[in-house]
């Protein structure tokens, strides 16, 4: 397991922070009103962030 590539579509993100709160491995972080993924190597691809993002703003790519 070597993590994943996490894509944040900044145009869509409204900064609700649901993905940051429910990420089990603390991969994501808020940068004021925008989500960032500073620790993609810890990602276990549970897809919670992608499933729970109401704004179609986060995608977990398998690579």
């Amino acid at each position: 397991m070597s993590g994943a590539r996490i894509e944040v579509i900044e145009r869509n993100c409204k900064g609700c922070s649901i993905c940051v709160e429910f990420c089990p491995k603390n991969v994501l972080e808020m940068d004021v009103f925008l989500v960032t993924a500073p620790r993609p190597e810890d990602c276990i691809k549970c897809m919670q962030c992608e499933l729970l993002c109401p704004d179609f703003a986060i995608k977990v790519h398998d690579e």
Partner: peptide, 26 residues
């Protein structure tokens, strides 16, 4: 891996109108 939602959404419609954190998007 990442799910392709965009092909089911009309082009240019995102971001949607719902408030930050509203569950309707989910």
């Amino acid at each position: 891996m990442a799910y392709d939602y965009e092909s089911s959404i009309r082009p240019g419609k995102l971001p949607h109108i719902w408030c930050p954190g509203c569950g309707h998007g989910i």
